Simulated assay, not measured.
Amino acid sequence: MKIQGKMFMWLSVFLLIMAILYGLWAKEPIGITTLFMAFGLAIMVGFYLGFTARRVDPGAQDDKEADVADGAGELGFFSPHSWQPLGLAIGWALGFLGVAVGWWLLYFSVPIILLSVFGWVFEYYRGENRTQ
């Protein structure tokens, strides 16, 4: 993870330089704002990856002498299935439709969104997946 953090930090430096040069040269507010926001996002991801790299064991990508086979094996836990994203997508689709059609549709979309988020967060705290 250390190398990914460094890559995002270098990307953020590049985006900051480009934002400043673009601001001086083009004087166009939308592009300047977009580049500064991209700089902010890149530095957030780079900081997160660098911070996380200090807390976890180094991976195969951090070793300069590693082979491709050194990266094989289990990488973490990934949810095999979940119906909650579908409910969340339906809720947000109704919400955006409510902005276009009528605000009354939000009365139906907000409970669907809240139930889907709640179900997704607490998905592994109930039923057969519950741990003691």
Rank of each mutant, 00 (worst) to 15 (best):
Q132F: 08
Y22A: 10
I20H: 03
E28W: 01
A89F: 13
F14W: 03
S116M: 04
A93Y: 05
L105G: 04
G98N: 05
P85R: 11
A53R: 06
W92D: 00
L114Y: 00
I30D: 13
E74V: 13
F118T: 02
V110F: 12
M1Q: 06
A53M: 08
W83S: 13
Q84T: 14
F122P: 04
G5M: 07
K27Y: 09
R55K: 15
A69H: 01
S12I: 00
L94N: 02
V56H: 12
L24C: 09
T33G: 15
E128T: 10
M9G: 04
M1L: 12
D67E: 11
G73I: 06
Y125F: 14
A100K: 06
I30S: 14
F47E: 02
S109G: 05
E74Y: 07
W104D: 07
L24F: 14
A100E: 03
W103C: 00
F39W: 13
M18Q: 10
G119V: 07
L88V: 05
V110H: 06
I32A: 12
R54M: 09
H81Q: 07
F36C: 08
Y125T: 12
M44A: 15
N129P: 02
R55D: 06
R126F: 14
G5E: 08
D63S: 09
F36V: 11
L97E: 03
V13N: 00
N129W: 14
Y22P: 04
P29E: 10
L21A: 15
Q61L: 14
G102N: 15
D57Q: 07
L15E: 00
G40A: 15
I112Y: 06
V101L: 12
G95V: 06
A66G: 03
S116E: 07
E128I: 08
L75S: 13
G71C: 03
G5P: 06
R54Y: 05
A42K: 03
V45M: 13
D62V: 06
L94P: 02
R130N: 05
V68Y: 12
F8T: 00
Y125N: 14
L24P: 01
L94K: 01
I17K: 00
F77H: 03
E74T: 10
I20T: 13
W10T: 08
G50I: 09
F47P: 00
F14E: 00
P29K: 09
T34N: 11
V101C: 02
P80N: 13
V117W: 11
A26V: 03
E128W: 11
G31N: 12
D70Q: 02
L86C: 03
F39P: 02
R130S: 08
W92Y: 14
A19F: 02
I30Y: 14
L94M: 14
